[in-house]
Amino acid sequence: MNLYVSNLMSNVTEDNLKKEFTAYGQVASCKIIMDRATGTSRGFAFVEMPQQAEAEKAMKELDGKNMDGKGISITEARQRTDRQAY
């Protein structure tokens, strides 16, 4: 299950995030999305957990948790759609 984690502080690292989720089960990948121009965090990440039950428990338990001064938000990631150029 792929989780979308938002409202991250810029100082949160992939290791910090992975550690939080590993407490609930196996984490296959953890990727904080970075701004191409500045190289800083855009404030969101994707965490993939192979076991749906573990991912759902992590989502339930960690949603709203204070992480480095901000409450994080966790939802199931949606498939990316092609963007229309106007």
Rank of each mutant, 00 (worst) to 15 (best):
V47Y: 09
Q52V: 10
E76D: 08
T22F: 01
R83L: 08
R78C: 02
N16R: 09
M34N: 01
K65P: 01
K70F: 09
F44C: 11
R42F: 02
K70I: 01
G71M: 06
S73L: 06
E54N: 15
M1V: 13
D15R: 12
A85E: 07
Q79G: 13
A77Q: 11
L3C: 07
E48A: 12
D35N: 14
I72L: 15
K57F: 02
M49C: 04
V12F: 06
N16Q: 11
K70W: 03
G69E: 04
A53P: 01
M59E: 10
R42H: 00
Q79I: 09
F44H: 12
E61I: 01
T81S: 11
I33R: 01
R42G: 04
L62T: 08
D68E: 15
K19V: 00
A28D: 14
M49D: 08
Q52G: 04
K19Y: 06
C30S: 12
T22M: 11
T22R: 11
N11I: 09
A45W: 06
K31A: 10
K31L: 10
D68N: 13
F46W: 05
I72M: 15
K65M: 12
E54F: 02
R83H: 00
D68F: 15
E20V: 06
T81D: 07
G39H: 02
V27R: 07
I72R: 04
A85D: 03
L3A: 07
E20Y: 12
G39E: 02
A28Y: 03
I74A: 11
A55T: 05
Q52M: 05
I33M: 14
T81A: 07
E61F: 04
K31F: 00
M9Y: 10
T38Q: 03
K60E: 15
A55Y: 00
T22I: 03
K31W: 01
